[in-house]
Structure formats: C-alpha cells, structure tokens
Design a protein around this nucleic acid. Structure first.
Lengths: 150, 150
DNA sequence: AAAAAGTAGTTGACAAAATCAACCAAAAAC
DNA sequence: GTTTTTGGTTGATTTTGTCAACTACTTTTT
C-alpha cells in the first residue's frame, strides 16, 4: 500500500531530471572553454553564428527572453572579442551582430562539443528514437506557444 | 545556399524551447496560487508530500542540488506554514519534514494544476507517444548520471 | 572508550539567469 | 508632423544555484 514503483515517476519530474543533466553538461562545456563566459553566452554566440546577420532583437525573440538580458550577454561577448557590431543599413537604431575570427573558432569548438554531448545523451538510442524525441519535444513546445499572450 | 530549413533545428535547441515553455507554465502556476512561493518551492513541497517522511538531504539528493539551497527553500515553506519539522528518531541532527494541513491542500491543488499542464503539453499526442517521450527522457538522463563524480 | 572521519543542516557570500520599468533614438503609422 | 511603435540600453530586483565554513551529531577506527 505504501510501496510505490520507483519508476512510476511523473512526466514532469522525468523531464526536470533530464533538464538538470543537460544544464550540467553545458556548464562543464563553458568551463572547458576557459573563457569568461557562461552557458547562456555560448548559446547566444551559436545563434549569432548560425543566423548571421542578426540583431539583438532576433536573438531575444529566438530565445524567448528579455532584451535587457540579451543586451548584457552581447556586451560580454563583445568585451571578449568574440563578436562585433556593424551598422544595420536598414535601421539606424539597430546593429548587426557578427562573429569575429576568434568567435568563429569558438563556435566550431562548441559545435564539436555539442555533438559530443548529444552523442552521450542519446547513447543506446536508435536514430529513429532520437528523431522521435526531438519531434515530440518540438510538438509539445508548440502546444504551449499558441496560448502565450505577449 | 543560405536558405536553411527552419525545421532543421538542433536537438538541444528543441529541448531548450520546451524547457522554457514548461518553466513559464510553472511560473504562472506559482503566481496563481497567491502564496509567497516560487516554482522551486512548489517542487519541494510536492516531493515532501510524496516521499513523507523525508529529510532535507533526501530532497537535496532527489533534486540533485545543493543542501544550502534546500535549507532556504524549506525555511520559506515553514514560514508559510505549508510544512513543519518533526524530530527524526533515528538521527538527532536531522528532522523529518511533514506537510501541514494547509500544505496538503496546496499540494492537492498543485497536482490538479500539474495534470492540467501535462494535458496541454501533450495535446494531440497519443498516450503511447507521451509514454515514449517519458521513457526516452529517463533513458537520456540516465546516460549522463553514470559519469558524474560527486 | 577516545580520536578521527563522515554526515545533516545552517549561514554568508556570491554568480548566473531572468524580469520589470524607465528611458533614448530612430522608424512607422496616422 | 505629431503620435505610436520598435530597437536597444541601463538600473534595480528576483530566482536559482554554488562554494566554503561552521556546528552538532554519528559512525568508524584504533
């Protein structure tokens, strides 16, 4: 009566545990790089590299986060000379964000590390299962998106 | 050449997006309760309720987090009279954590809300898909667990 | 049984992640 | 040609999380 299946865990708790593990991995990743950056900075520089040319607002909307936070993340990346600003010809208020030479090198390293993390994470999974997980994650994230009022 | 599939997103990014959406939901949940608590407090009281009797260390190890943080979360829950401490007969250093009457009511409300969140999140998914997602999440979290040195 | 080592929990200090509100300058809408 | 919206910055604050030091009690070792 009081003995429950340990495996009978709630969906959200399972998700939290994976969340924690992934966060730890990214934290380690940031430490290994030996730069003055946090996991969030790394996420931002990857986005900048991928979506070049992109603006601060693009990043904020992709991350779904406050632009104040993005401004500070960007400033830190500029201080470390991993990215730079260039005038946006279409809008004098905004600037294009570009990865510097140094930044590109970091991103390449990061992509290698990310692949490594995903490899470890999906160890023992079929490629089809990996794809299925991603499909479901995207689907569920989409389920929430509709109902959010900005 | 420069036009990429928008859907060709990285596994980790998909996961992050879901993470963000879930976090927002829990944040709203905490606000709706109209108590002086944060999502993390709610997670803790649910654990206390589920694993009763349990100690601070049990919670820290289940959450995988620092005991300092747990101490503070617990103190806040006690201030709000949602949980209480009772002496642990097996060990004078530690205390059992128990939900108060008020705490039990909150947990019941929380379970309803959680179920609601999961419902919305898994809208359009087959029960088998929901189970599959959970299975994969648990499997992947397990893949990381092995390699962590305490 | 006494010393050493380990464990439960608390406290202080601090870093990281995130949000809110107020603000400026430029752009778009009217 | 004002008004409103948008891109971005800054300041203040909250939430989450970690590290280190410490107390008090337990367990292990000798």
């Amino acid at each position: 009566m009081s003995e429950e299946h340990l495996s009978e865990e709630y969906l959200l708790e399972s998700f939290f545990h994976l969340m924690l593990a992934v966060k730890r991995q990214l934290h380690q990743q940031a430490e290994q790089l030996d730069l003055e950056v946090t996991p969030m900075h790394l996420r931002v520089i990857k986005i900048i590299d991928r979506k070049q040319p992109c603006t601060a607002i693009d990043i904020a909307s992709f991350l779904g986060r406050d632009k104040a936070q993005v401004t500070r993340l960007i400033n830190a990346l500029i201080d470390q000379e991993l990215i730079s600003k260039a005038p946006n010809p279409n809008d004098k208020r905004s600037q294009y964000l570009l990865t510097t030479e140094r930044g590109v090198a970091v991103v390449e390293e990061l992509n290698r590390m990310d692949e490594c993390i995903v490899q470890r994470m999906t160890k023992g999974l079929q490629p089809s299962e990996r794809a299925e997980f991603q499909r479901l994650a995207r689907l569920m994230a989409g389920n929430f998106q509709g109902e959010e009022q900005s």
